[in-house]
Design a protein around this nucleic acid. Structure first.
Lengths: 176, 176
DNA sequence: TATTGTTATACTCTATAACTATA
DNA sequence: TATAGTTATAGAGTATAACAATA
């Protein structure tokens, strides 16, 4: 497991000890080593993502799930009869990468692949009762974890965070 | 779920009837299939991260860099004499995963590994002139890319986005 | 004993091409 | 010809354990 900044790390920042009492406890270092990267939004995004991914995976581990299989299971549970290509499109994944994920969920008895009645190439995906139950539990666990993650911010701030993240995501489509 | 600032390509897609979707050039059409996941901050974070990572890698490709090597190079260029363990700590990476990255940069003549004078176990990392020049170019390219990524939002919104991302990241220390 | 950097290993996720069976 | 799902493969990124040299 990854730990936050150890005392050893700050040993090198000798200027901090020479500094007077900081007014705010927020920024721990005067000039962090990664100061040059903190100018980029993507860097903060990346660091936040690492924390979220670690916590979500930790939350899902007892349920035998990880982030991607969880997403796949939830979308299938919410959309019975869904096809793999639609699923891939919805999650922004390649179909080829989806195959082993779906297969794992089938093997675990969480979803079922049935032949689509109108197109014999396609498979209709649906959650089994056990899969639906696990999806519900996992959803609740991740929701609670997500709430802890953002409990420090106001509802408005959290809503704006989501809106800004979506703005970043959808910008590419408009840009090309 | 709430519909936010409407992306351009959604407007054209909305004209189509519900089931039969004409094939548009719009790449990742965000269908409501993933509505159950949009409740989670981490999901939006993940999607935004995918876009940013793809764009940054695309930006860095002509320079022969990727996201992680770029980060490593920039931090080394900003902190001559840095040691691997400090670098790993600053970037939140494992030392073992840093080794091949550093080695690649050394092989490309972008950084140099010198023996540390006070600790013969450690290596002092520094950018070569060529590495420093590439770091400067890459930094500028990523900065421009980052600006394009967030040009649609006000400076205040962008600052708040970074602040909220940092809040998510640093929250973990108090959570345990 | 502890730490630095390394090696080895394994797993997750991603990206691309090619194949099959249908359409 | 084109599409749905699969297979194969390669690469990036991440995590852990263990090792030799040094502290």
């Amino acid at each position: 497991m990854r730990r936050r900044a150890s005392p050893r790390f700050w040993k090198s920042a000798r200027r901090a000890s020479a500094e007077i009492m900081p007014r705010r406890p927020a920024p721990p270092a005067a000039t962090p080593l990664d100061a040059g990267l903190r100018a980029f939004t993507g860097y903060h995004l990346r660091r936040a993502m690492a924390v979220v991914q670690a916590e979500v995976n930790e939350t899902l581990a007892p349920l035998g799930l990880r982030m991607v299989p969880f997403s796949v299971l939830v979308v299938i549970a919410d959309n019975p009869g869904l096809r793999s290509s639609q699923l891939a499109e919805a999650l922004g994944m390649e179909r080829s990468n989806l195959t082993p994920v779906v297969e794992g969920l089938v093997r675990d008895g969480l979803i079922a692949r049935a032949a689509a009645d109108d197109d014999r190439r396609a498979h209709a995906l649906a959650a089994t009762p056990r899969g639906a139950a696990l999806a519900a539990r996992a959803r609740a666990a991740v929701a609670e974890q997500d709430m802890r993650l953002t409990e420090q911010m106001s509802p408005e701030a959290r809503a704006q965070l989501v809106a800004l993240l979506d703005a970043i995501e959808t910008r590419r489509a408009g840009a090309g």
